[in-house]
Measured scan of single mutants.
Amino acid sequence: DHDVVPEDKFQETLHLKEKEGCPQAFHALLSWLLTQDSTAILDFWRVLFKDYNLERYGRLQPILDSFPKDVDLSQPRKGRKPPAVPKALVPPPRLPTKRKASEEARAAAPAALTPRGTASPGSQLKAKPPKKPESSAEQQRLPLGNGIQTMSASVQRAVAMSSGDVPGARGAVEGILIQQVFESGGSKKCIQVGGEFYTPSKFEDSGSGKNKARSSSGPKPLVRAKGAQGAAPGGGEARLGQQGSVPAPLALPSDPQLHQKNEDECAVCRDGGELICCDGCPRAFHLACLSPPLREIPSGTWRCSSCLQATVQEVQPRAEEPRPQEPPVETPLPPGLRSAGEEVRGPPGEPLAGMDTTLVYKHLPAPPSAAPLPGLDSSALHPLLCVGPEGQQNLAPGARCGVCGDGTDVLRCTHCAAAFHWRCHFPAGTSRPGTGLRCRSCSGDVTPAPVEGVLAPSPARLAPGPAKDDTASHEPALHRDDLESLLSEHTFDGILQWAIQSMARPAAPFPS
């Protein structure tokens, strides 16, 4: 592969990997390779389809078979030569091979799209000592099968071997295949498990690692696999990028399955594409389908809103127990993405979901129960707010008499603000006073009005108090039968009158 990737590009890729991570280095090298001529790309395919690569990765054979028959990708048995050289000459001794072996032994695996480039050397060096003999053996194999790289107009793939297949390693990572398949204008990513390549439709969760975000852009890794992070704060999961590491605690105790298979379609829109997988259930989501939507993949363990709600429900009964003089119970939860139609709101002032922060849900004790107040519409209280300059209440639009249902020339009671006709409430011909108009209920007259088809109010509507207090003497005590009587009149003013009279009014101040 030294004929494909020059030394300066190799060093530039290593520097970019240390600065921005393996995914960015892979993407940059792939983009550079696509700008080369067809001879360089053909050399790339020839390096990929060597015999030892085909033996190690069985899924490469179907890719090789898909090439046109007129494309010669065979390799000479006596060494490598550029395709432009007409004579089959043995190339001179390859010093770059020693360079590659020494550099890969030092860096474990470079971040390139060629056999030198995919593992994360920093994480491997940190986690190597417990498994040094086995990992050293794996390093000797890295130059042979560490990076199976493929690129063409139909298929483009980048393979990364790992030393996680050490025997006896619980939940060992089998390997990473960062794979971009450009077929019919689409893009897919796969993962390699035990020599087999699994596409998103049959993606397997190998051991402790999972394909957290099938994305090839942005600074985030394709698999949430930063070796420096180790395990999740809650004892979460091992990262795919942690090559040759000792077994780590796999999943939280509440995880239903340690080796679950995540779905390959969004649980909201039932469509495929780039998904984020939940650590607590097999569901996966688009970032845009979450509520609120996320802009980037959160670091650490992530769970959907259903799993978060289940966790909150487990903690909430203990938080609601009476604990005198104790601060509110704080339950730190990872930043969760909410699927459509589901929402768990945190306290005000918290950062938005999706940031690399930890939301704190506070379970406050329930407030003391209070008697429910009568629910009145805002339009129902409008007549009470229509007060004239002299303190006389004006008529609201649409006000109707509670007896006849007519809204023409209605009066407004100064005591309960109900609309009424003087002739309907006082049919006996009582003279109307000039000021202080009161309806039949507030004036103490319980004589029913002779209106055909309208039920008369119940005599129990009024329960006047002592006459010594004029204001308190007109406080009506309405009961269920009074409400039914008012409802039978089918008037809004009657219902409003009952609601206003049912509310307690402050006692009249004593004259000074």
Rank of each mutant, 00 (worst) to 15 (best):
D406S: 09
L487D: 08
Q243C: 13
V268R: 14
Q501C: 11
P397L: 12
P335A: 13
P351E: 14
E489W: 00
P450F: 14
A467D: 13
D493I: 03
G336E: 15
Q243M: 10
Q316D: 10
A396S: 11
H425S: 02
S245A: 08
D409C: 08
A370V: 13
P374R: 07
E274W: 05
L455I: 07
Q257V: 10
G273S: 08
G241N: 10
S379G: 10
S245W: 13
M355I: 09
C304G: 15
D255L: 13
P292S: 13
L385Y: 14
H286G: 13
C304T: 14
L308T: 10
T435R: 06
S443E: 09
S291T: 07
L290G: 12
P348V: 12
T447C: 12
G465E: 11
P509N: 01
E489I: 02
Q392G: 10
P298D: 13
E274F: 03
P464F: 10
A366Y: 01
Q242E: 13
G241R: 10
C413I: 02
C281E: 08
P367Y: 15
L483Q: 03
A499Y: 04
T311P: 11
D356V: 03
R438C: 03
S431R: 09
I500C: 03
T471L: 08
L352R: 06
I500T: 05
S291W: 15
G405F: 06
L455W: 14
G429K: 00
A472P: 10
P247K: 09
R461M: 05
E330S: 11
K468P: 08
T435F: 10
T430Q: 02
L333F: 10
W498S: 03
C413S: 01
P282S: 12
G402Q: 06
A288Q: 11
G349Q: 13
S369W: 13
P249C: 15
F492V: 05
E475N: 05
P464E: 04
P327T: 07
A463L: 12
A251N: 07
L411E: 08
L364I: 04
R423A: 12
G429M: 01
L462R: 08
P476N: 07
R323N: 10
S254K: 04
A428I: 07
G354S: 08
P256C: 11
L483I: 09
Q392C: 06
L294H: 01
H425C: 10
G375Q: 13
E350V: 12
E489V: 03
F510M: 07
P448Y: 14
S291I: 11
P389F: 07
L376V: 08
H479C: 00
L478R: 07
R345N: 13
L258T: 06
R400H: 05
E296H: 15
L486V: 03
Q242C: 11
E342Y: 15
D264E: 08
E330I: 10
P367N: 05
G280A: 07
E274H: 11
